[in-house]
């Protein structure tokens, strides 16, 4: 097949997975949150379980008037959602669902994914600054402060994975987790990195990715009780929806990255490589939804941190722990 046709198929597949997955996660958030608080959650739209609620919400948002506040920097204000969603979609290029089901396996995959997902913060800062609103401005500045806190633990945790795998390509990292650790009789057992030395790295990566997504307990840029809605205060209609979509698609992509780095991606211990060819996407997506569930679970369980508490957590605990993790991983790699 020609490159252009293949690329079109990939784009459509990724868009379908991203938007479909985001709708599922939004619905899961509504429903799981409701049940954790002992209430019903959505039950009206789309029959008994209210499954059409996210779609109905989206349609409702689209019917609202698109407002630009007085004195706002209109061009930047309108550009911000574009930047945010570009950063979000960009990550999906390197996420492999199975050994062959990947948009593009870049050599620098892991590095690229971390870099491009930071683009979202730029969009958030643009939104916060251009709104001509004090709440938005503080929200945007807090998002920038948050980047300073979470970016390093996130990157340094991935460095340890890169050491262990010897590559930055995400497919390569997943394949490295298919190397058998031990054998039981005839069966070769390969374990994911979370079980072979990267458990601290996984914890650091996960905490940092909550901060990256600015979800509770690290949702200071939005902080409804302090800043109304943070950087999206002035947004309405479809532009607001795009920030919303980016948040949940970002949750999917961060879960997918954690799955690839630490949980073995599309691998499952004990399955043959032909089985993985077929079942790979199912395994990968199940793991992603499992991690997304943990994100939702934490959101409805923990109270919000303060910005300085996040800074102190990141700089005094996560970064030293991540550096130590690198040192230990490298020593093991060289000695054994």
């Amino acid at each position: 097949m020609s490159f252009a046709v293949l690329l079109t198929i990939k784009v459509l597949a990724v868009l379908g997975l991203m938007i479909g997955g985001a709708l599922v996660v939004i619905f899961a958030e509504l429903k799981i949150g409701a049940h954790m608080q002992n209430r019903m959650g959505p039950y009206f739209a789309g029959g008994r379980f209210g499954w059409a609620q996210p779609l109905a919400d989206g349609l409702k948002f689209m019917q609202k008037e698109d407002l630009v506040p007085d004195g706002a920097d209109e061009r930047v204000y309108k550009l911000a959602p574009y930047v945010v969603l570009m950063g979000t979609v960009g990550v999906f290029v390197v996420l492999p669902l199975s050994p062959r089901f990947v948009a593009r396996d870049l050599d620098l995959g892991a590095f690229y994914a971390l870099a491009i997902s930071s683009l979202t913060t730029l969009g958030v800062l643009m939104a916060g600054w251009s709104s001509n609103n004090k709440y938005s401005l503080i929200g945007g500045l807090r998002a920038a402060a948050q980047l300073i806190a979470y970016e390093l633990p996130l990157v340094l945790a991935v460095v340890a994975v890169a050491i262990q795998a010897g590559t930055l390509s995400i497919s390569g990292i997943i394949e490295a987790q298919a190397v058998p650790v031990f054998t039981i009789g005839e069966l070769n057992v390969a374990l994911p990195y979370i079980l072979t030395g990267q458990i601290i790295g996984f914890a650091i990566f996960f905490i940092a990715s909550i901060a990256e997504l600015s979800r509770i307990p690290f949702d200071m840029p939005i902080a409804e009780s302090e800043l109304t809605m943070g950087f999206v205060t002035e947004y309405s209609s479809i532009r607001f929806t795009m920030f919303f979509l980016a948040e949940y698609a970002g949750m999917l992509s961060m879960s997918a990255l954690a799955t690839a780095f630490y949980l073995g991606g599309y691998q499952l211990p004990g399955l043959s490589s032909t089985a993985i060819e077929v079942l790979g996407p199912v395994i990968f997506i199940s793991k992603v939804f499992l991690l997304s569930f943990v994100f939702i679970w934490l959101r409805w369980t923990l109270p919000r941190f303060r910005e300085d508490q996040l800074q102190s957590l990141a700089w005094r605990w996560l970064i030293p722990a991540a550096l130590l993790n690198i040192a230990i991983t490298a020593t093991f790699k060289v000695v054994f």
Binding site: V11, Q63, L85, G90, R239
Partner: peptide, 22 residues
């Protein structure tokens, strides 16, 4: 090219949404 196209698609999603909402 793949990365560029995907970034472009991110913008097209927003642009298409804005157009449809209009």
């Amino acid at each position: 090219v793949t990365v560029a196209v995907f970034l472009l698609i991110g913008a097209v999603v927003v642009g298409g949404g804005v157009f449809a909402a209009r």
